[in-house]
Amino acid sequence: MKNKINLIHQNKFQIKTTHADWWDYSSNGLYFITICTKYMQPSFGILNLEEVVLNRVGKVVKTNWEKIPHYFPFATLGPFIVMPNHLHGIILIEKSIEIQENKPAKFGPQSNNLASIIRGFKSSVTIEARKIDFEFAWQARFHDRIIRDENELENIIQYIYDNPIKG
């Protein structure tokens, strides 16, 4: 019976990852990140004349994003924007050679990688935000893009800066 259930449910409830299966997300690199609120609720503020006006929860998001390098010293933040219902940002992961050589297997413990950074960030924001708005929630996942060259980086930076204008 158990085998039949496994066959019936095999891959039915598994959500395919959006991450590149050919990339080790603990590797040095530049990443463009988008994190959204659940149901795209405007939990972080409003757009007013092409400018984002953050509310208390939005300020928590901004402050906690800025704290990422404190908790993950191998991470450096690039430009970012907190919009009413999402955040766009660039994270540079840059580890020393010693850390890279001693890192666990790709499918081992999930620490010191991009997912652990985002998980820690979302968790810290959720704890603080629910003190202000107990219904606050994130979308379950986040979107990332591995930035491969200078031209792509420049385009993404411009996209981040232009985001409030585009609404």
Rank of each mutant, 00 (worst) to 15 (best):
I68L: 08
K67W: 08
L47Y: 09
P73S: 11
F80A: 10
F80Y: 10
T76H: 12
K67Q: 15
E66V: 03
K67C: 10
F80S: 14
L77A: 12
V57E: 07
L49M: 05
K59I: 03
N55L: 07
T63H: 13
T76D: 12
G78R: 00
L54Y: 02
F80P: 02
V60Q: 09
K67E: 13
F44W: 08
F74K: 11
F72W: 14
L54M: 05
N48A: 05
A75S: 13
N48S: 08
V53W: 01
A75C: 14
F80L: 10
V52F: 03
F74I: 13
L54G: 03
G45I: 06
H70D: 14
R56V: 03
E50V: 02
V61N: 05
V57G: 02
H70M: 15
K67S: 15
Y71P: 08
L77S: 09
G78W: 00
I46S: 06
L54W: 02
I46Q: 07
T76V: 08
W65V: 04
V52R: 02
T63F: 15
V60L: 10
V61Q: 03
I68N: 09
V57S: 03
G78I: 00
V57C: 10
G58L: 10
E51R: 11
N55G: 06
W65C: 06
V57H: 01
F44T: 01
L47K: 00
N55R: 06
N48L: 05
L54Q: 05
K59P: 00
N48W: 02
P79A: 10
V57Y: 04
P79E: 08
E50F: 07
E51K: 11
T76M: 11
I68F: 07
F74Q: 15
V61I: 15
I46E: 10
N55Q: 07
E50L: 01
N64T: 12
G45W: 03
I68C: 04
P79G: 10
K62S: 14
N55Y: 06
F44R: 00
K59M: 07
V52P: 02
E51S: 01
P69H: 09
F80G: 06
T76G: 14
F80Q: 09
P79L: 12
E50W: 00
T76E: 13
V60D: 06
A75Y: 05
K59Q: 15
L49V: 02
H70I: 09
K67D: 13
T63Y: 14
G78T: 03
P73G: 12
G78S: 06
E66W: 00
L54C: 04
W65P: 04
T76I: 15
N48E: 15
L47F: 12
E51W: 00
G78M: 00
L77E: 06
R56T: 07
E51P: 00
V61P: 04
R56N: 11
G58I: 10
V57L: 04
K62C: 05
Y71E: 11
